[in-house]
């Protein structure tokens, strides 16, 4: 089989806050046998506009994504939330009859969140990473409920030498990030984030992993303010064996 040509859409948050997630993604995709390209015209998937009810702005941003990411075998994102925007929302943004409808549906069909892409599309069964640590995994909402990502990250984490995974209570309950929700309704968001850090800390794990940077920044920010002893990383950093740099919010 020819090497699939994969476009990496790192997402606006990763580009701005955590380049390590981008590099880990590149490594995992290359190890899985993909040719990775990073289109330079990428910015954001449009979700902030769509979820705020600003259909026109969201559509204009999405149209640019459709143009930038056309022509690849696959488009892969290290975020269940942004991937779900393209997979589930783009066809609604450009409904039947819209000139961009077909392109939107086609892009939706070729777009994947990275961990589920590795397991479900590329058939990756194990990774070569090593890490002596006890970790717990937070299921980010969109990835879990819109894209069915639950077993894939756990399967790959099980192959990381030295790593043990301890499940927390309510791992499938939202951390309270929710995009603009966390600043519009900060009191509710705080309660939800604090529930999450309490459940994570109760496992005794030293590391919390998840597949979405938004959730991770929220959880890491709460954990550091509370003086919790666990660190937070994106799951691809561990799977790629790139955990030498500081954890999220650590430097």
């Amino acid at each position: 089989m020819a090497r699939p040509r994969v476009a990496l859409f790192v997402t606006c948050l990763v580009d701005l806050f955590r380049p390590a997630v981008g590099f880990a993604s590149v490594k995992l995709l290359q190890d899985a046998g993909c040719t990775v390209e990073v289109p330079m015209a990428q910015t954001c998937c449009g979700q902030p506009g769509w979820n705020s009810g600003d259909r026109e702005t969201a559509r204009s941003v999405a149209a640019q994504v459709i143009e930038t990411f056309g022509g690849y075998d696959h488009v892969v994102l290290p975020s269940g939330s942004c991937a779900a925007t393209i997979v589930k929302d783009y066809p609604q943004m450009f409904p039947e009859g819209d000139p961009l409808h077909e392109a939107a549906v086609a892009l939706a069909g070729r777009t994947h969140e990275i961990v589920s892409f590795l397991v479900d599309v590329m058939g990756v069964k194990r990774v070569s990473a090593k890490l002596q640590a006890q970790a717990t995994y937070h299921d980010s909402c969109s990835g879990l409920r819109s894209l069915g990502i639950r077993d894939q990250p756990r399967a790959l984490l099980a192959s990381v030498e030295g790593l043990t995974l301890t499940e927390m209570e309510e791992s499938e309950v939202c951390c309270g990030f929710g995009g603009t929700f966390c600043v519009k309704y900060p009191e509710i968001s705080t309660v939800m984030a604090a529930d999450k850090t309490r459940n994570a800390a109760a496992t005794g794990a030293g590391l919390l992993l998840a597949g979405d940077l938004g959730c991770l920044m929220n959880i890491a920010g709460m954990a550091s303010r509370e003086g919790r002893s666990f660190r937070c990383r994106h799951v691809v950093e561990v799977l790629a064996g790139q955990t030498d740099g500081p954890a999220i919010g650590e430097g």
């Binding site: 600043v183 900060p186 705080t190 920044m217 929220n218």
Partner: peptide
């Protein structure tokens, strides 16, 4: 609203 209760990475 964020930094009242949480740090911002």
């Amino acid at each position: 609203g964020w930094t009242g209760t949480r740090d911002f990475p």
